[in-house]
């Protein structure tokens, strides 16, 4: 119980609630989109840099390589069973986009979990940041392959879709490139480099995470409001109960798989939690950007709503402390 309370009373989470409250009381409070974008760039830069420095301080041994391979394998595997679970219940395009969404990771959930561990004083390793960056592309590619394989042939012969463009988008998407680049720079510059940028990378991290989560609270609450209004019948045509069940059930199921793999790999407390969060979260930055380009038939109202309005708040409020409690109990 104490992990839940300390999670809920941490400043970032309380600011997330403030964002939710702002929407509930119809306040005009909002973080301008460009500022929110700058905050997210800062967080990716800071977490990438921290991860790179941590990598420089540790050895890249067999265990690390195995964990990275497991992360890549899971991000390719999760879309497959997600797709087959959903293909009869959603359109093929929506099923494929949802599959890719859940195979990929939510950088914001990861950053929040890392902040949670820092506040709890639990160590975690830099290579998990690399795992996060590596898990974006396989899910996108598997999602598109599944769509191509199971859609009607005439629908697949489409207008100007190119693998080159998709690979470019999934490998060099702005957020992926920034994480990988910051990590590489942190790795090259090492602890000496960290001393130089520590006030920005470490000192401001939690404070800016608060502001960022305020914005995420506003955005997620708006999405949820749209979603529940459509449940009330104002917009029809989306399978609401399914979205709710998948949005809550899939992260839990994936987290259990993550827990098993983390146990098999012998990961420590902090690393196991981050690994579970990576496996349990769904992307709402890199994947939707790639899907809208490669698979515009898929409706963002389905896959984005699930990952942003249902799974993300669930992981943030309940998931992270619950996974942590499970790890403490089991490992």
């Amino acid at each position: 119980m104490s992990v839940f309370l300390s999670n809920l009373s941490s400043p970032p989470l309380l600011f997330f609630f403030l964002g939710v409250v702002a929407v509930a009381v119809r306040s005009d409070l909002e973080i301008p989109a460009q500022v929110a974008k700058a905050l997210s760039l800062y967080l990716l830069f800071a977490i990438g840099f921290k991860g790179g420095v941590a990598l420089a301080e540790s050895n890249i041994d067999l265990g690390v390589m195995l964990a990275l391979l497991a992360a890549i394998a899971l991000s390719a595997l999760i879309p497959v069973y997600t797709f087959f679970l959903l293909r009869k219940r959603l359109s093929i395009a929506d099923a494929a986009a949802t599959a890719a969404t859940y195979g990929s990771v939510s950088a914001v959930t990861f950053v929040t979990a890392a902040g949670y561990l820092d506040m709890q004083g639990v160590d975690w390793s830099g290579y998990l940041v690399a795992a996060m960056a590596l898990m974006e592309s396989p899910a996108i590619i598997v999602g598109i392959l599944l769509y191509k394989r199971y859609t009607r042939k005439d629908a697949a012969s489409d207008t100007g879709f190119s693998w080159k463009q998709l690979l470019n988008e999934s490998l060099f998407n702005g957020s992926v490139l920034l994480i990988m680049g910051s990590m590489l720079i942190g790795w090259i510059s090492g602890p000496a480099g960290m001393d130089q940028v520590a006030p920005l990378v470490k000192g401001l991290f939690l404070g800016l995470l608060c502001l960022f989560l305020l914005d995420m609270g506003i955005v997620a609450a708006r999405r949820f409001k749209d979603f529940s209004q459509s449940v009330a019948g104002q917009v029809s045509g989306r399978p609401f109960r399914l979205m709710l069940i998948v949005g809550l059930g899939l992260p839990l199921f994936n987290a259990m798989i993550g827990l098993l793999v983390a146990a098999a790999l012998g990961l420590g407390e902090g690393n196991a939690l981050l690994f579970m969060v990576l496996v349990a979260s769904g992307s709402y930055i890199a994947v939707p950007a790639a899907m809208r380009l490669a698979l515009p038939e898929a409706n963002p109202g389905t896959y984005l709503t699930m990952s942003l309005a249902i799974t993300f708040p669930f992981n943030l409020l309940i998931g992270i402390p619950a996974y942590h409690a499970m790890i403490r109990w089991l490992l």
């Binding site: 909002e30 989109a33 749209d226 917009v235 930055i285 950007a289």
Partner: peptide
């Protein structure tokens, strides 16, 4: 850029980080 509205695909608020809507 960044226009918003509502239609077949529900609300498009144009408020997300990556411009997903």
């Amino acid at each position: 850029p960044d226009v918003r509205g509502a239609g077949d695909r529900g609300q498009r608020r144009a408020d997300e980080l990556s411009g997903d809507s």
